[in-house]
Write a protein that binds this DNA or RNA. Structure first.
Lengths: 338, 338
DNA sequence: ATGAAAGCGCTAACAA
DNA sequence: TTGTTAGCGCTTTCAT
């Protein structure tokens, strides 16, 4: 690998001049600039960004940490945050990590090595490591999860009101005549969005004078396969009446797994069982039948997250919580049943 | 940010001792090690990896460049390559880039800055920049695309035989009595996999004495939306007989978009039109109806790619081409029609 | 307009 | 077992 020093030698100039050319700084003779550029492209010189940030005291980097590669819900949001940041003088740096990785560790690495000025988190669970987040010392924005009541001074969040959203979905089903409504979600932990959504379901049932039956809560991972497995089991092998006429799934992925289980049990969506998903993924619109789903305002989540992190970096108040509204995207997967 | 020097001072030792502790090297007194560790965790010291690779002359990094974030086909392959590399003394470094980004530029950055010993490319098009790839000077393996005939000495590839795979899909439809078979693919460019697959389709039609009709080639982007748009247009607004009884789509994503278009036109899959996809995505198994698709051997592509890059780094022969077999995953989206 | 030189945080001889 | 020191490739004053 050729370095700046070798480029300087080959061009017959000093390293500082090469540095000036690389960084498009003024005070370089046009002819000199041309000669240096020539050497650079001829030898395929690539500046070492590591050495650069090592030397530079300050950057304009805002890191975006995405936990859950291939989560289709995050995709458009990441793109939008990135593009919003690019419209300022800040530089977005997207960092994908595995579902099982430690997002706060990644963040601290990004702060130390890349001198990131702030972090936007997509996915991940702030409640588990409030202290470590505070320790990062840079503003953090959690997109799509809440940081309410965690007491992290440098953290803000932009998310939907999960209680309200689940109530909305359940209301929707009840309004269409359903009385035995099952819920398909993840493991319920305190302060978790899964728990919040189930609270919303129960609020709706209660408000309509319907019975709350915890046996109709089905627990599954957020995957096609596991949702399929759980609902297949719930429906049993018999062609007998299903234990519920409607199902609220906490993600579109789960909803699709559930639909397939319903079909494979010899039943139909929505004729035998109505299904409502959550997230508003693209695939929901292309599934057969079109999935009714609780749409998250992805574009707004992205915009507000970008605004919030920039505000916080510029000395604005951190610790804010922005709650956005969901809206039901009506598909063909729900039947009116009286 | 606290540095190694400050840690050394706080622990009352030299920087080299701290370095030894960080890197788990021997020759450190147990008590000293403990003391240094304490200072590190107390102050949340994070070593600067940039400075480290700057100093180190050689690393064990193998970079994996994934072009096309959120491409569900790549996901499991990336994971598998990563895990295979982890079983050796090499360290995988996954780098996601946008569909529109320059993968060779990213590669050269990774070689320069991270001192990557080799690169595995997922996605991207080697034929466009053969020279630039050769310039990288490190072994490259292209997973899922062919480098045949490009004359890049340091590049190998692991991919399926696209001609054969498409012939297989078309044979499958013809065997079930279909005679007017449409193809849904991307823009046909020379040396591109899209072109190869269409050649396979034509070979199959020809071998069975069926007419090749280029009007039945529908061009679309590899997205739900565009496939939907194109097939909706192809089917017209009338309930008249469709111009084809079967459709071969060059990706499962396109196949699903096409299915939805067929449904929305008032027709049915597979009763009116049979559909075969390509890739063997998870969603194909959960779609309704289950999608028949040309399954790519993802696990094998991953394994062979990992093996090949390691062999090449260890001085083995580069420039190899490994062709793998696809197999039809039979779903409910194809009807026998005589 | 250009160059010399210090030093960013770290590793790896080599010395002690 | 521990410390000293010379850079890795780059930016950035400060001279010239």
């Amino acid at each position: 690998m050729i370095t700046i020093r070798e480029v300087a030698q080959l061009a017959g100039v000093s390293v500082s001049t090469v540095s000036r050319v690389i960084n498009d700084l003024p005070d370089v003779n046009a002819a000199t600039r041309r000669r240096v550029r020539e050497v650079i492209s001829l030898h395929g010189y690539v500046p070492n960004a590591g050495a650069k940030t090592l030397k530079q005291s300050n950057t304009n980097i805002i890191a975006i940490i995405v936990k859950g590669i291939g989560n289709p819900f995050f995709e458009p949001i990441v793109e939008e945050i990135q593009s919003k940041i690019e419209q300022t003088h800040y530089i977005p740096l997207v960092h994908y990590i595995d579902e099982s990785a430690d997002e706060v560790r990644s963040a601290s690495l990004l702060v130390a090595e890349k001198k990131a000025l702030g972090i936007v988190f997509l996915g991940g669970n702030p409640s588990a490591q409030a202290r470590a987040i505070a320790h990062l010392q840079v503003p953090c924005v959690f997109a799509t999860v809440s940081t309410e009541g965690l007491g992290i001074p440098n953290a803000s969040c932009v998310c939907v009101d999960d209680v309200r959203a689940a109530r909305q979905a359940t209301d929707f089903l009840i309004d269409r005549g359903h009385k035995t409504i099952a819920t398909l979600g993840g493991r319920r932990l305190a302060d978790d969005l899964v728990n919040k959504r189930y609270i919303g379901v129960k609020q709706s049932l209660e408000a309509h004078g319907l019975r709350i039956n915890d046996a109709l809560y089905y627990e599954s991972f957020f995957t096609f396969e596991d949702a399929y497995r759980v609902i297949t089991q719930a429906l049993g092998r018999t062609q007998a009446a299903a234990p519920f006429t409607a199902l609220f799934a906490m993600s579109d992925i789960m909803a699709i797994g559930a639909c397939k289980a319903i079909f494979d049990s010899g039943r139909n969506v929505p004729d035998d069982i109505s299904v409502v998903g959550f997230d508003g993924l693209k695939i929901a619109a292309f599934y057969n039948p079109t999935l009714t789903t609780v749409g998250q305002p992805g574009e707004e989540i992205a915009r507000r997250s970008a605004e919030l992190i920039i505000q916080s970096i510029n000395g604005g108040s951190s610790g804010r919580q922005i709650l956005l509204d969901t809206s039901i995207v009506v598909g063909a997967s729900v039947k009116t049943c009286f």
